[in-house]
Amino acid sequence: MEMDAVAFEALVIDELDRLPDDMVDGLENVVFVVEDRPEDGTLDLLGLYDGLALTERTQYGMGELPDRIIVFREPHLAECDNEEELRQEIHTTLVHEIAHFYGIDDEQLHELGWA
Rank of each mutant, 00 (worst) to 15 (best):
L11G: 03
E15Q: 15
Y102E: 09
A10K: 15
P75Q: 02
L11D: 00
L46S: 08
A53W: 10
E15F: 13
H91S: 10
E84N: 09
V30F: 14
P75G: 03
T42W: 00
T55C: 09
E56D: 15
D4L: 02
L77R: 07
D25I: 14
V95L: 11
I98G: 04
L16K: 10
E2I: 09
G63H: 01
A7R: 15
T92K: 15
E35F: 02
W114N: 08
M3H: 02
Q88K: 15
D21K: 13
E79Y: 11
D14S: 12
D22C: 12
C80W: 07
D105M: 05
I69S: 08
R68K: 15
G113F: 01
Q59C: 09
N29V: 04
E56Q: 12
D81V: 06
L46K: 10
Q88C: 00
P20G: 01
Q59G: 12
Q108M: 12
N29T: 06
V6T: 15
A53E: 02
L54C: 02
L46F: 14
D4H: 11
P66G: 08
G61N: 11
R68S: 08
N29A: 08
E107S: 14
E89A: 14
E9P: 01
L19K: 00
T58K: 09
V31L: 11
G26H: 04
M62W: 13
E79Q: 13
M23A: 03
L112V: 10
G26A: 00
E111S: 12
H100F: 09
I98A: 03
E2N: 13
L94K: 04
D22R: 10
I90C: 05
L43A: 02
E56V: 01
V34L: 00
E79P: 04
V31P: 10
H91C: 06
D40F: 04
M23E: 13
L11N: 05
M1L: 06
P20R: 00
E64W: 07
C80E: 09
V24R: 15
R57P: 06
F8V: 09
L45C: 11
L48C: 13
C80K: 03
E84G: 00
F32T: 03
P75S: 07
D40S: 01
Y60W: 15
P38N: 00
A78Y: 07
E111C: 07
L94V: 10
R37L: 08
D36Y: 01
D50Y: 12
